[in-house]
Simulated assay, not measured.
Amino acid sequence: MSIDRVDLNLLVYLDALLKERNVTKAANQLGLSQPAMSNGLRRLREVFEDPLLIRTSDGMTPTERALGLQSTIREVLATIDKAVQPQAAFDALTSTRVFRIMASDYSEPTLIPPLVERLRQEAPGVSIDIMTPSDVDFYDVEQGKVDLVINRFDSMPQSFHQKILWRDQFICLMNKHNPMAQDFTLENYLKAHHIWVSKTGMGAGVGMNPKDVQRRGWVDDALSELGKTRNIRVFTRHYQAAVQLANQKDLIVTLPRKATLETMNNNDLVMLDPPFPIPEMTLTMAWSPLLQHNPAHRWIRGLITEVAREIDEA
């Protein structure tokens, strides 16, 4: 017998017949007419090539074949019923789930610390595995091996779900003794020595060529619109390293404002608006369609959204 011959409704009929051992009672249990149940029994006999229920002086008596099927059919129907039931709500307080999150160097120091603080309060058993952009690729995300990716993306598979967490403006950071701090014009900006910070995407990175303007990112794209280029002396993939390097008296770093939060108590650094317009950057959270309806995944996305909103409004 091939599975494509089996109508699941017939298994429901057989389960009722074996419970009631009466065609009329089984029909009433399922809200069917007696002829419909009789027709169902006829089809069941054809599928299993066995009478299944035989009329005797004690009523409808199951055959040996039917008795052997009874527990299996109940197990199958119970499994199907469980599968079609709504998923249980995620219990953050008792969960021990591990969420794997790819976070860029920009989002890790800005978003992750307050997120971890909230997790310790609301989901003490939950762990998060923070990954870098070079650790994963879009295929890992698509397959659900990585729960979320949080970064600034130039492109993304159309099937992915995504949500903007915040938008950030660019600022320039430099030592207060840097001569440029007193006369911060576009002309002087172009003469200065700069720290370049990677617009991290996904996948393994490659080295930078100082002459390769096309791959430098949003700051240099904005300068290119003016027909200008800047003098880059340090290429780094880490915002925290760039901020530390800005302490040197002849270097300037241009980066998103939220990446400078840890410098608020550093009196040796000054923060100035760029002397030319730079489009704001967008921090996006993205995930696989395979995880869209998962209760635990919906919960962590909601928590991250709340934390991001609090940061953005601060």
Rank of each mutant, 00 (worst) to 15 (best):
F170W: 10
Y106A: 14
D154R: 15
E122H: 09
M102G: 12
M174C: 02
I80S: 06
P133Y: 03
S159W: 03
L77P: 05
D154V: 10
L111C: 02
R100N: 09
M131H: 06
I80H: 06
V146I: 15
F153I: 03
T94K: 09
I130C: 05
D105W: 01
T200V: 02
I130P: 07
D168V: 02
R118H: 10
D154Q: 13
R167G: 05
D147F: 03
D137V: 09
P179I: 08
S134T: 13
M180G: 10
D81P: 00
H193W: 08
S134L: 02
F153S: 02
I195G: 07
Q182V: 08
P109T: 02
P114A: 08
K199N: 14
F90H: 07
L173N: 00
V84D: 06
V136S: 00
K191Y: 04
A192V: 01
F160E: 06
V116L: 15
G144P: 08
P157D: 05
I171H: 01
D91K: 05
L148M: 06
E117S: 09
E108Y: 12
D81C: 04
S198N: 12
C172S: 15
D129C: 10
E187C: 01
I80V: 15
S198C: 05
Q85K: 13
T94V: 09
D129K: 12
R167N: 12
H193P: 00
L148S: 04
I80T: 09
L77Y: 01
P124A: 04
A192M: 00
P133R: 00
K145L: 15
I101C: 05
P133T: 01
I164D: 10
W166T: 07
I128H: 02
P157K: 07
E108S: 12
F184S: 00
K176D: 10
K199D: 15
N151T: 08
P179Q: 03
F90K: 02
S155G: 11
H177F: 10
K191T: 11
N188C: 02
Q87M: 12
I112E: 09
M102S: 14
L119P: 02
L115D: 03
E142W: 13
T110G: 04
P179T: 06
A103M: 10
G201P: 00
N178R: 00
I150G: 09
A88L: 07
N188R: 13
M156S: 12
F160Y: 12
S95P: 01
G125I: 00
L111I: 08
